[in-house]
Every structure is written in structure tokens, then in C-alpha cells.
């Protein structure tokens, strides 16, 4: 257990990255409630290991723990659940401002579906680069994937997303409109 000084340090250094932790878990686990549970578990794990953390990139350190927790979680809960299924009723993206709604409505649906359908390795690399703004090196550290593979996976995944955005609307998005 940490003393109160260490705890304050944890709250100052690690807690500001809670959004990053949640965003990564949400995209790795396809959803809301599971992601929250996994983040809570990852945070407690980080808290327990915190005395072993001696400086460096806190976000990368935390996201590594979040990622491992998520993959363990997926392994445990694999049966009985189609991990590639996406239920927008339950897991839809949060409400946007009315202003951006009109512009983004179509591309949000397409992007969400396209991102959900990427293999998990591509998906996490897109989330870390495009949403979290991590450098290639940070991504390599977080995912334990060689930097060359990070780059090739990133360009492949981006191409898939571009195709999803520019291609003809699929049935589902026509239905949504």
C-alpha cells in the first residue's frame, strides 16, 4: 500500500491520464460498461505497481497496463460474446454538439463501424496515433510491437478507414439516415 505522499503523487501523475485510459479501453473492448470495469481494474493495478514506477512517460506506462488488462479481459470473456459485434443502442458514441452534428453525422457512423471492424492491433494503433496523438516510439512501447510494424500497420489501417469514408454508403448507414 502507498503512503499518503505516494498516493498524492499517483493522483497528480497518473489520474490525469484517466481519459486516455478509458478511450483506449473503450475501443479495445467495444463498449461502455466493460471498458469502465477494465479501466478501474487497470487503475488499481497501476496503483499497486506505482512504487515501482520511477519517472519516464507516465501515459505510456499507464496505457501499457490498460492494454494488458484489456487483452486479459478479452481472453477471459471471449466465450458467449461476439467481440466484433457493435451494438449502437448500447455503445453509441457520446452526444456531439448540435453544431458539429450535421457535418459529422455521416462520417461518424462510417468511421465508428470501420474502426470497430479493424483487427484489434490496427484498431489500437489508430486509437493511439489518431485519437491519443502518441508518437511511433510511444506506440511501440505501449503495444510491445516493433516500430517498423507499427508504421506498416498504421498506413494499412489508415487506408482502410479512408476507403470506408469515401466508398459508397453501406446499407446500415443508409438505414441510419
Amino acid at each position: 500500500m502507498l503512503d499518503s505522499q505516494e498516493q498524492a503523487r499517483f493522483e497528480t501523475l497518473v489520474l490525469p491520464h484517466l481519459d486516455a485510459a478509458h478511450n483506449l479501453a473503450r475501443w479495445l473492448l467495444h463498449g461502455g460498461a466493460d471498458a469502465e470495469d477494465a479501466v478501474q481494474e487497470a487503475m488499481l493495478r497501476a496503483y499497486r505497481f506505482f512504487s515501482g514506477f520511477r519517472g519516464g512517460d507516465v501515459r505510456a506506462w499507464l496505457l501499457q497496463i490498460v492494454r494488458n488488462t484489456c487483452f486479459t479481459w478479452l481472453q477471459k470473456n471471449r466465450h458467449g460474446k461476439d467481440t466484433d459485434e457493435f451494438d449502437e443502442e448500447v455503445h453509441g458514441p457520446p452526444g456531439p454538439t448540435p453544431e458539429t452534428l450535421a457535418i459529422a453525422e455521416d462520417s461518424r457512423g462510417r468511421l465508428t463501424r470501420a474502426l470497430e471492424s479493424l483487427p484489434s492491433r490496427s484498431r489500437e494503433i489508430i486509437v493511439l496515433r489518431e485519437l491519443e496523438g502518441c508518437s511511433y516510439k510511444e506506440i511501440a512501447i505501449i503495444t510491445s510491437i516493433p516500430i517498423g510494424t507499427v508504421m506498416s500497420t498504421l498506413s494499412r489501417a489508415r487506408r482502410q478507414l479512408q476507403l470506408a469514408l469515401t466508398g459508397p454508403a453501406d446499407k446500415e448507414s443508409i438505414h441510419d439516415l
Partner: peptide, 22 residues
């Protein structure tokens, strides 16, 4: 693509309840 991803607001922040719980 980068602008579309930004506009689509795919980033999902931690809900306040989760922060409190932690």
C-alpha cells in the same frame, strides 16, 4: 482523414462516475 476522425468525436472520455469510483 485526420480531420474527419477529429470531427467524428470518437474520443471517449472517462465518465465522472468512473473517476469518482476510482
Amino acid at each position: 482523414l485526420h480531420a474527419s476522425i477529429g470531427l467524428a468525436q470518437l474520443y471517449e472520455r472517462a465518465p465522472a462516475t468512473l473517476r469518482k469510483k476510482i
